[in-house]
């Protein structure tokens, strides 16, 4: 019985995934022909994923919403460049990562600390504010690479693929970003 259920599950799952993919392909094709309703379906399917990634970089809800909108608007404009070889989600993640970076660069000192609802660490109520101060003193590229490595847990290869930087470039940036952060922590401790 157990074995039968296992077989049944295996039989259903691939077909469901296939159906999901086929549906997605239809939405993409229709979107390329200008069908906004089909594109809205793509938005609804991936909006949570995009909000989550944007939430890594931005603390104010209006920034997260704005960069999420920008991601989908860029996806709409650039949809003809999606070759369909990798999953659409991967392509959209790349678009979102680049939109986040563009916004970080536009606004190097993005958020006034008092406007952010910062999480309070159980041990130290000032830890969240201290972290934001440190991050605000890093260059956008350093902030980006640290939040992707330590926050999102992406590998060097994943960051390279999604940012368009080379792997060597990502490694160098990560090394420099950690070194800068180390110096900032040391400066804070010396005060």
């Amino acid at each position: 019985m157990r074995a039968d259920l296992g077989t049944l599950t295996l039989a259903i799952l691939p077909s469901e995934a296939g159906e999901r993919q086929a549906e997605e392909r239809r939405w993409i094709t229709a979107s390329l022909d200008g069908d906004r309703d089909a594109f809205a379906e793509l938005v609804r399917r991936y909006q949570q994923r995009v909000f989550r990634l944007a939430g890594r970089f931005f603390r104010r809800p209006e920034d997260v919403e704005e960069v999420a909108q920008e991601t989908f608007l860029t996806a709409w404009r650039k949809l003809h460049t999606y070759a369909g070889k990798a999953p659409f989600e991967h392509w959209l993640t790349r678009v979102c990562t680049r939109c986040c970076y563009a916004r970080l660069r536009q606004r190097p000192d993005p958020e006034p600390l008092q406007s952010i609802d910062l999480p309070v660490a159980p041990g130290d109520p000032t830890a969240g504010v201290e972290l934001e101060r440190l991050l605000a003193r890093l260059k956008p590229a350093d902030r980006m690479v640290l939040l992707l490595l330590d926050g999102e847990g992406w590998s060097t290869a994943e960051i390279a693929e999604r940012t368009g930087w080379t792997r060597t470039n990502v490694k160098v940036r990560a090394h420099r970003a950690r070194a800068r952060l180390r110096r900032l922590v040391e400066e804070d401790l010396e005060r």
């Binding site: 200008g34 906004r36 939430g55 919403e65 909108q69 709409w76 926050g151």
Partner: peptide, 27 residues
């Protein structure tokens, strides 16, 4: 702190409509 730094925000029901309202010509 870096690991836990995440703004958890759920898109509201009107998000897709706000996006489609801003769409220009396709591609």
């Amino acid at each position: 702190g870096l690991k836990g730094r995440l703004t958890t925000l759920t898109p509201d029901a009107g998000f897709a409509a706000r996006v489609t309202a801003r769409l220009g010509p396709p591609a």
